[in-house]
Design a protein around this nucleic acid. Structure first.
Length: 293
DNA sequence: TTGTGTTTTATTGCCTCC
DNA sequence: GGAGGCAATAAAACACAA
């Protein structure tokens, strides 16, 4: 087994008088050492988070092993020296010591030098060991804190995910609804387009009939005039002022305007009063109901 | 009793602060 | 530069099942 350096009693800035090489087999022999160690009361300073080891319920078994008498520190107890000089051993703290340290940690998880010394005195442990215990305790606290934070975040994530999934489902439902409504709308648009096409054809027929009759009338009139004046070179074009001169596209555009269609239909009806139907549709279904559609 | 996993104690090396 | 903190790690101590 490799020999490990075990130095206690003040950390890196160790007071040489407090340096000890320590090891132990287990807590029992250590306790017996504590029990046999001379106990000497020491002053407890007013440092914060300071507790009395006796108040935790355990007797101060340790006495002042590391801070007892100057004699002990100077001469060194041979028994203790032998006891603590066994390398490669780790000393477990007693339940009472741990309870005391836990209470102290709860009050303040940082360890000022003064408090370290005080705790060491109270527990009869080397200040270095107190420092190490706090160091490890902080590490454990941090690990547990991380676990707690993780659990909290995970719970939050799961809650958000549930909400998100619900929203997705709702979104899908709404999309389907929109699609369904759109399909209905398309069907109506198809009917509308068919109706418009039929309307255009009918109106175009009516207009052409109307134009033909106008042309005939003008021609007849012109014929009369030319007969009267003897001028046969004067050719009168049919009146297309109410029609676009830009061809079929503009006609189509105009045909879709309600006023124009109303005018033409009324006009057609005036010329063809026998028809009780507009454009082959019953009167009640005529263009106005279509445009309000 | 022994193998194995977990917890606790302690060291090392690096970093920051004064 | 020394003191102290922290992360990483080693190793002893402990718990427990087979």
């Amino acid at each position: 087994m490799a020999v490990r350096r075990v130095v206690y009693g003040g950390g890196d800035s160790l007071d040489p008088t407090q340096k000890l090489k320590i090891s132990s087999h287990d807590q029992q022999p250590l306790d017996s050492v504590f029990a046999s160690a001379p106990s000497k009361p020491f002053l407890v300073s007013g440092s914060r988070a300071m507790l009395s080891f006796g108040s935790v319920g355990g007797a101060n078994r340790s006495g002042n092993l590391f801070f007892s008498s100057s004699d002990q520190e100077e001469s060194g107890d041979e028994y203790l020296e032998e006891y603590f000089s066994q390398p490669g051993k780790k000393r477990r703290l007693s339940a009472d010591q741990i309870q005391f340290l836990e209470k102290s940690f709860e009050a303040e998880n940082k360890l000022e030098p003064e408090r370290k010394i005080q705790l060491a005195k109270e527990l009869g442990l080397p200040p270095r060991q107190i420092a190490i215990w706090f160091q490890n305790r902080r590490a454990r606290w941090k690990t547990r804190q991380l676990e707690t934070d993780y659990d909290t975040l995970h719970a939050s994530y799961m809650s958000l995910k549930t909400n998100y999934d619900n929203l997705l489902k709702e979104n899908e439902k709404l999309k389907a609804e929109v699609l369904r409504l759109k399909d209905n709308g398309l069907a109506r648009d198809t009917d509308k387009a068919l109706f418009q096409e039929m309307l255009k054809e009918t109106i175009a027929d009516m207009i052409s009939q109307d134009e033909e009759s106008k042309v005939s009338a003008v021609a007849f009139k012109n014929e009369d005039q030319s007969l009267e004046s003897g001028d046969s070179s004067h050719v009168v074009e049919p009146d297309r002022s109410d029609l676009s001169q830009n061809g079929e596209d503009d006609l189509n555009e105009e045909l879709l305007q309600p006023d124009y269609m109303f005018h033409k239909i009324e006009d057609a009806h005036r010329h063809h009063p026998a028809s009780s139907f507009y454009c082959g549709f019953p009167a009640e279904d005529h263009i106005f109901s279509f445009w309000s559609y």
